[in-house]
Nucleic acid binder design. Structure first.
Lengths: 331, 331
DNA sequence: TTGTAAGCGTTATCAC
DNA sequence: GTGATAACGCTTACAA
């Protein structure tokens, strides 16, 4: 690998001049500039990002910690963030936190030592204070799907309450009076917010909130199965179900089908992951603008990495995607 | 941030000694070692991976280029590779190549300047010679899903022919005689190999190969739709369809359903992505051991990064997942 | 066993 | 405009 020294020698100038040419903006004579360019060309010289980083204390790298490197939810977030970041000449480094505090901490430390110029975090186990401390410690943080008081400027999150409201309202409009809510765990703030939206819609329609129609469990297929089984086994009356996410919906559908109630049960999921539309009957879902979240996260992180101010909105709006699983109450 | 110098001063030793302690294996007196450890603790010292990389010419970083950062296929590959790599104390850097030569080249250059100790590539546009040259240039390359002659030791790929064979054979066993093949583009080697398996099965059953039952198009839902429409519009007789991947299968199913032929058409997809089992009727598919591929890729890249020999298998075996969409020929 | 000093490939501060 | 030269934080001969 050719170094700046080699280029300098070949071009007959000093390293300093070559460096100036590389970094564009300096005052260098046209003749020197030409010689340098030619030499760089000739040697196929590429500056070492490593050495640049050491010298400037800027790595042009953005770190990202996600809860699941695979999976339909984080994929599009990563993808759109990566695009934005790469277009800016930065590089994205992603690691998996798996939603576990320990792994998340390890992932973050890893990136700190690297280092990165900013971090995009989707962490659940990692405590609030530490996130704030991290940011104050000099590594700017963008926090996704989590809302820390006094730290709002660094957070990007969905209007979960409105999402819950949209889904529930639509089912009520369609005549359903008994709408169950199979939430994810209420330790997740998202779940609580969606519950609030659910309640708001009920109130608007003058329907009393029934605690016995609300369940919480894991945010996955098994959780969905368990909640739906309880719902049925306890003989709770219902004609519609609002699910905390699409995986829960999948699990619940399995149970409904076994009990031969699938076609009579109105259902709305959450996130609108890719396969929702492929199911049969297709699943209605509250669309989560994942790509937009990724883009905003990328832009925000870049701005912070360059200590620029940015006017990026913190709140994303959900949208109800109506499909087969939404229909009028049958009697 | 505390540096090695600070630690040395606090511990009352030289930087060299601290460095020796950090890197374990050197001969350092116990007393010195203790003092250093205590000082590191006290200052919460973390060595700069950057400076280490510059000094040693090893970055403890593995780069990966995928064709799609989101999506059900690459997610699990990345996830398992990341786990393996992280457990070894290395870091994975992923970038998106989108299957486009230009982007792929850019992504690779990005990583070269970083630099990375090894690369895992899933690239389609990037030319063979350049891949080999890259490897010989000193950055070890692991190549996924592509098979370059004379470069086999660096490739990990699926036995596509066997996959095509398994799927087709099963449909023939179930009595189907007219099995269509909706492939991805035949510019992909994978497609050609699967075709070979398809033909092998036909031959075994003494059924003549009919070119008019084979179509090629994009490896996605739209491609599947188009191929299936052609198949039907051209009035080709068929009772079973083998699809080049699960997205093609999804597209084809859509068309079949519109024509009211879904329940009578036997179908097998390829890859066995997450949602195949969630479809209704559930989709049979040739399972692609993506996680194993990711793991092997990680191990192989690590071995290469450390110039160790590795005995990692290059060929992965597919498996047929039988679900609702596989059934006996109805008459 | 330990310290000194050179070097990794850049940038940045000075003089000239 | 340009060139020495000292950083940046670490590793690694080589000497002691």
């Amino acid at each position: 690998m050719a170094t700046i020294k080699d280029v300098a020698k070949l071009a007959g100038v000093s390293k300093a001049t070559v460096s100036r040419v590389i970094n564009g903006n300096e005052r260098v004579s046209q003749t020197a500039r030409d010689k340098v360019h030619q030499a760089m060309e000739e040697m196929d010289y590429k500056p070492s990002a490593l050495a640049q980083a050491l010298a400037t204390n800027k790595s042009r790298t953005i770190g990202m910690v996600v809860s699941d490197l695979s999976g339909p939810f984080f994929g599009p977030i990563m993808k759109s963030a990566e695009r934005v970041i790469r277009e800016a000449g930065y590089q994205l480094v992603v690691t998996n936190g798996q939603g576990q505090a320990e792994l998340e901490r390890e992932a973050i430390e890893f990136m700190l030592n690297r280092p990165v110029d900013a971090m995009i975090l989707t962490v659940f186990g990692f405590p609030e204070e530490e996130i704030v401390k991290l940011h104050q410690g000099g590594t700017p943080v963008v926090l996704l799907n989590r809302h820390i008081e006094g730290f709002e400027d660094n957070c990007i999150y969905l209007d979960n309450k409105h999402g819950g409201y949209l889904a529930t309202r639509r089912m009520l409009e369609l005549g359903h009076q008994r709408v169950a809510f199979l939430a994810g765990h209420f330790t997740h703030n998202d779940s609580l917010e969606r519950l609030a939206g659910y309640q708001k819609a009920l109130a608007e329609f003058g329907i009393p909130f029934r605690q016995e129609l609300v369940f919480d469990d894991d945010y996955n297929e098994d959780g969905g199965r368990r909640m739906c089984q309880k719902l049925i086994n306890l003989e709770r009356e219902f004609t519609a179900i609002f699910c905390g996410n699409d995986l829960i919906a999948i699990g619940a559908r399995g149970v409904l089908e076994e009990r031969d109630r699938l076609s009579q049960t109105c259902m709305v999921g959450f996130d609108d992951v890719l396969f929702a539309r492929y199911l049969n009957p297709s699943l209605s879902s509250v669309f989560f603008p994942v790509e937009e979240m990724g883009e905003r996260a990328g832009h925000m992180a870049l701005a912070m990495a360059q200590s620029k101010a940015s006017q990026i909105g913190h709140l994303l709006q959900p949208k109800l995607m109506e499909r087969d699983s939404l229909f009028k109450l049958k009697d």
